[in-house]
Design a protein around this nucleic acid. Structure first.
Length: 498
DNA sequence: AAAAAAT
């Protein structure tokens, strides 16, 4: 098992790979003539029916490296009801949908039934497609197993199995599901297995489920030091400090900023930042996993088509999603895991273009920043002076202000450690925008709720933001956790509600 | 300190 290395000297074209004429004509219609290294390496072996272990990241042309040979192989034979002929497993719904688009694009000369089984949408249409017999079944693990348990799906007719983004499946805890699914499929199948990295758990999985695989490894698509200008930007640690820093950055970039993804670590923060930016009349959308599926799809396609300039997103958008040309990436929060930083900023500076990334850094982020710099093996430059140039502010977390009347009953035994920075204090700076959401004063809670409600109501007529409505209602339920602040009524503590 | 995915 040695890695295949294709030399760049021989300008390889698609027509030498053994693909069918139907596939080739669709590929050339799409404007491609030369395969990427992973495609050149994987396609001939996949066509021969061999198992393939592809180690490649998004942006390397990995998807076509299994879609094209599968289409060629599917030209013989026909699907039977409830017995799909091929199965492609993807970690997220968007990725699954994206793979479906690839099958539609490159399979336009074929008459194939394609079924997409993902959560968040109704079963009816999926059932119908299964009943009709699917040549290509693309699924996220949860929904697939759900269909199977309902008896709508038999996996013993699967000829080709694709496991995509295996390392991400591992991160998401899908490996037991993947093992279960693999065991339902006859081992006479062909397996195409893709992963960006090979941690031990993934290696074990390939040893168990691949038979004499051809291993193809291509170098990273987006290494961090190429065309991306990275900067870190100092900020006070309060959310409104960070929002102000972000707004300034966006404005300062001016026309250079064509479109940008703004990453937050948490879904609530995505919603909150999205609302704030919208309020400041930035052209923004939001994307995270608790939004309903239709909203996710709409946001993504609006962003892709350039109808939306800024996309505030959780790490759903960090990997895999095909968002071609992003001029800027902002990390509103420093990612918790250093690898995520690489994935996030890898959304810009692709395909030889240049990109910029800004990461907003507060005092409490310095450790995470250090881990990132270690991982990427370089120091990231400060954009406009480091944190030491910040006014020393009342940000010194060492001095817990006790004795503020009722301000202090709660917070899991009044911790005075790292949670400090999240605790609202009475001396909080007045935020131009969301201070009412954050202020702990319980007397204001009712009016604050009303404010949010009317904000959502006012949103109704606005199509670009309309999709987020359902989420906002939930956010309302999320916020009081913060809003209770430090004056939770004593009876609630007795009730053990902390 | 998170996110993702089945309901």
């Amino acid at each position: 098992m040695s890695s295949d290395i294709t030399t760049a000297s021989e300008a390889l074209t698609f027509d030498k790979l053994g693909l069918s004429s139907k596939v080739l004509s669709a590929v050339s219609d799409a404007g491609y003539t030369e395969p990427t290294p992973i495609q050149a390496g994987a396609i001939p072996h996949a066509l021969e029916g061999k198992d393939v272990l592809g180690i490649a990241q998004t942006g390397t042309g990995k998807t076509a490296s299994f879609v094209l040979p599968m289409l060629t192989r599917l030209e013989k034979g026909r699907a039977r009801a409830r017995m799909p002929r091929t199965l492609i497993l993807e970690p997220t719904r968007e990725l699954a949908a994206q793979v479906e688009e690839n099958f539609i694009k490159y399979g336009k000369n074929h008459r194939l039934n394609i079924a997409l089984l993902i959560g968040g949408v109704s079963f009816d249409e999926q059932d119908k497609k299964l009943e009709r017999g699917a040549d290509v079944l693309i699924a996220t693990p949860g929904r697939l197993l759900d269909h199977r348990e309902r008896g709508k799906l038999l996996l013993n007719g699967v000829e080709i199995l694709v496991i995509d983004e295996a390392d991400r499946m591992l991160d998401m805890g899908f490996i037991p599901d993947i093992e279960r699914i693999c065991e339902m499929i006859p081992f006479t199948r062909q397996t195409l297995f893709f992963s960006a990295t090979m941690p031990p758990e993934i290696t074990k999985l390939t040893e168990k489920f691949l038979q004499g695989p051809v291993r193809i490894e291509v170098s990273k698509a987006a290494s961090t030091n190429t065309s991306i200008t990275q900067r870190i930007v100092k900020s006070g640690s309060k959310p409104w400090d960070k929002r102000a820093v972000l707004r300034d950055l966006i404005k300062a970039e001016g026309d250079e900023l064509k479109n940008a993804i703004i990453f937050c670590n948490r879904k609530v923060d995505v919603s909150e930042l999205f609302r704030s930016l919208t309020k400041y009349e930035f052209d923004a959308g939001a994307l995270h996993g608790d939004m309903d599926q239709r909203a996710r799809m709409t946001m993504l396609s609006n962003f892709r088509d350039g109808r939306l300039k800024l996309l505030v997103a959780s790490d759903v958008a960090a990997r895999g999603l095909d968002i071609p040309d992003v001029s800027h990436v902002f990390n509103f929060d420093v990612p918790i895991h250093a690898e995520d930083y690489v994935h996030r900023i890898g959304r810009t500076g692709r395909a030889g273009r240049s990109g910029k990334s800004f990461t907003i850094v507060t005092k409490s982020d310095l450790k995470a920043l250090d881990a990132i710099e270690k991982l990427i093996g370089q120091k990231i430059e400060w954009h406009d002076g480091d944190l030491s140039s910040l006014p020393p502010a009342e940000e010194t977390d060492e001095a817990p202000r006790r004795g503020r009347g009722a301000q202090r009953g709660r917070e899991r035994g009044a911790r005075s450690d790292s949670r400090q920075s999240r605790r609202p204090t009475a001396s909080a700076q007045p935020d131009q925008e969301l201070e009412t959401v954050i202020q702990p004063d319980s007397e204001e809670r009712a009016s604050r709720r009303d404010a949010i409600r009317s904000e959502n109501g006012a949103r109704k007529g606005r199509p670009a933001n309309g999709q987020e409505q359902r989420r906002h209602r939930r956010d309302e339920d999320d916020h009081p956790v913060i809003g209770f602040g430090n004056d939770m009524p004593a009876f609630m503590m007795i009730a053990g509600k902390v």
